[in-house]
């Protein structure tokens, strides 16, 4: 796993609970009351709010996010593109896999603001005019899933893997699909689906 370059001595700044700056509190914070009921309000704009436009599946999608908002949360909570799944939110399961400029990445560790200007492809963008992508069709035929929750990530990874050319053997497919966990254990069927779509393609 990789991280950022960081200013050198990891001293006190990392150790305590350095507080986030509280910007724009006045117009947005509603103090909680013991009785609990608050007047309904839509998410207030804060100083952190940024208006961005993401290119998702060939369409421009305008969003208001914070710098900390992940691409995954932007897709799921704002763009109503819930095909991309949150499994672990830490890059360990692959359920949130999408393509950025054709490369597979985990959207849970991608900041939405950093995805601006890139072509984002999600599971919703694979089928063309209602015709399944061959890999989607192969997953359906080979039963490459049970619960279906990891499936969009598996398929996005599989499409990328085929483009990358890592289909020389079942062992190679398995190694290069190992970033996508399937807890239902559909792995052999997923490998069969990938092998099948390569042979047909």
């Amino acid at each position: 796993m990789s991280t950022v370059s960081r200013r050198g001595v990891l001293g006190a700044t990392l150790t305590g609970l350095a507080l986030a700056p509280q910007r724009g509190q006045a117009d947005e914070t509603t103090p909680a009351s013991p009785s609990g009921t608050q007047a309904p309000s839509s998410p207030a704009r804060s100083a952190e709010a940024l208006d961005i436009v993401l290119q998702v599946n060939g369409s421009a999608v305008p969003l208001t996010v914070e710098p900390r908002t992940t691409l995954l949360d932007a897709l799921r909570e704002q763009a109503q593109l819930t095909g991309t799944k949150k499994g672990c939110d830490h890059g360990s399961c692959g359920a949130c896999t999408v393509h950025l400029d054709g490369r597979r990445v985990v959207s849970c560790l991608t900041l939405a603001v950093r995805a601006q200007g890139k072509a984002i492809t999600t599971i919703e963008g694979l089928a063309v005019n209602g015709t399944l992508h061959p890999v989607q069709a192969a997953f359906a035929e080979q039963d490459g899933f049970q619960c279906g929750y990891c499936t969009p990530g598996q398929i996005m990874s599989a499409v990328a893997l085929i483009d990358e050319g890592h289909t020389g053997s079942d062992a190679e497919i398995r190694e290069w699909m190992s970033g996508n966990i399937c807890r239902c254990g559909a792995y052999p069927n997923i490998v069969a689906a990938i092998r099948g779509s390569v042979q047909e393609g």
């Binding site: 890059g91 490369r103 190992s178 970033g179």
Partner: peptide, 9 residues
């Protein structure tokens, strides 16, 4: 890591 993370890291 994984192929996805290696594409980012």
């Amino acid at each position: 890591a994984s192929p996805q993370v290696r594409n980012m890291g």
